[in-house]
Amino acid sequence: MHTTPQGMLFVATDVGAADEVDFNAWYDHEHVEERARIEGFISAARYESVRGGRRYLGLYRTDSLGAFTSSAYKAAFGQQTAWSVTNLGRMVKPMRRVCAVTAVAGQGSGSFLSVLSLQAGAEADALGPQLAALPGFVQSYLLLPDAALSTPLPQESSEGRQLLPLLVVETSSSDANDAALAQAQTVLGTAAHDAACYALKWKLFSAELAR
């Protein structure tokens, strides 16, 4: 049991068709492992949209929000490779949030994931136990963005930028994800909007890396 919330770096982005091959190669062969090696990081995972939202999503779980203020994390930004600089500049309409992971229900990683952007004040804390009763449910959690840590990416527009809570639901199948999403929207009513559904591409745990 965690006495302090774990952290999550949430990065969603589109990318131009001409850059997609190199963008994916960079993520798969450099960026994911690079981030997973940072002290305090637990895992790094990539997702691709199957409906709504930006095309690609990266989720990086940490042992706490303190991982994002550490010297190791700051050093990673001071040692960007030319490949990283190029592909960070290729991001289209990126969305970067550094969040506390709260209201966790279930355990494990699902092959499908939904993200619901919630209005501030939405009552979502008790939703997890209800979703847990559904077939194919794996895990759900509420991401609460930290305003000081959620600095925008270079290509991210600051106009109208809102740091809204994000409900994430992970399931073992596409049908289960649709059912969980429908249940969440029923319970939350008009508080849920802009739902995006993703399929897991791959996930790397820091504990798997040779040091």
Rank of each mutant, 00 (worst) to 15 (best):
M91N: 02
S70M: 05
G66C: 08
R55G: 06
S49L: 07
T102Q: 10
L65R: 01
L57Q: 01
S117T: 15
T13H: 04
E30L: 07
R37Q: 13
E48A: 14
G7D: 01
C99M: 03
V32Y: 01
W83F: 15
V11S: 02
F10S: 05
Q119C: 08
Q6E: 13
A120N: 14
R35T: 03
R51D: 11
V50H: 06
Y47R: 05
D22A: 10
E123P: 09
E34V: 06
Q130P: 09
E39N: 13
F77A: 09
V101P: 01
A17E: 15
A18Q: 14
V21R: 13
V104N: 03
A17M: 12
A126I: 06
A120R: 15
S84Y: 06
S49N: 08
L65Y: 04
H31V: 01
M8S: 06
S43E: 04
R51S: 14
F10N: 04
N87R: 05
S114C: 08
A17L: 13
A124S: 05
N87D: 14
V15D: 00
G40Q: 04
Y60F: 09
G78N: 09
T81F: 08
L65F: 05
S49H: 08
A120I: 14
Y56M: 10
S43K: 08
T13M: 10
G7Q: 02
M8C: 12
D22S: 15
A100M: 07
